[in-house]
Amino acid sequence: MLELRLVQGSLLKKVLDAMRELVNDANFDCSATGFSLQAMDSSHVALVALLLRSEGFEHYRCDRNLSMGMNLNNMSKMLRCAGNDDIITIKADDGTDSVTFMFESPNQDKIADFEMKLMDIDSEHLGIPDAEYQAIVRMPSSEFARICKDLSSIGDTVVISVTKEGVKFSTAGDIGTANIVCRQNKTVDKPEEATIIEMQEPVSLTFALRYLNSFTKATPLSDTVTISLSSELPVVVEYKIAEMGYIRYYLAPKIEE
């Protein structure tokens, strides 16, 4: 028996929007820790890892570990039927092949339930060890989204370089080149507007902009984004989900031949 009640139902809609461009089908894993997911895109270049901790739910009952295979577009179709202020409850019984999403309006005058068929998905979990990163950049998520969008109109790949001067995003294409440098800036009115660079040593890596643009679909989930870089490791782009957990994206770098 599984029953997860999330007062801030719109958060689940945002989480789905943040993943479904990258991944079609995924197994949601439910345990005492929380509601989580790890899935790769079809080309195994990018990976998304989601954790919504059990403490973040108003009610969280998960009698035994359960893995539920869902088509994210179908799930999104159902969640779009929930109002933005609705409370969403996810329910599943042991041994059934469906999941129920229950939507309650804030004043309880409308209650809807949508039952979705589950699917069997062969998921390949990768072990992601904790690593020391050479550079960690924290910046406003809207700024990162703007940079990725702007650069993708010029080129297909971005070189992200961190030095003590700041973080530089560079691209090149048929029509020309572009460089955007963001310097560390802690003197802002609000902490979420700061750009903070923690650098152990300079690092420079190349990534496909198409994937980074997909990651920025998580922008509505968090005011800030953290980009962790190390040579010869996938970049980690993390959006913290307040009170709940995180959505992290891993992207393998382009390798020089």
């Binding site: 790769m40 080309s43 195994h44 270049v45 990018a46 990976l47 390949e124 979990h125 990768l126 072990g127 992601i128 060890p129 790949t157 190349t206 496909a208 010869e232 490791l233 996938p234 891993y250 393998a252 770098p253 382009k254 390798i255 020089e256 031949e257």
Partner: peptide
């Protein structure tokens, strides 16, 4: 010239 790396080159399957 550069080629796109894959995640399995960095992380092992569990």
């Amino acid at each position: 010239k550069s080629s796109q790396g894959r995640l399995e080159s960095f992380f092992k399957p569990m």
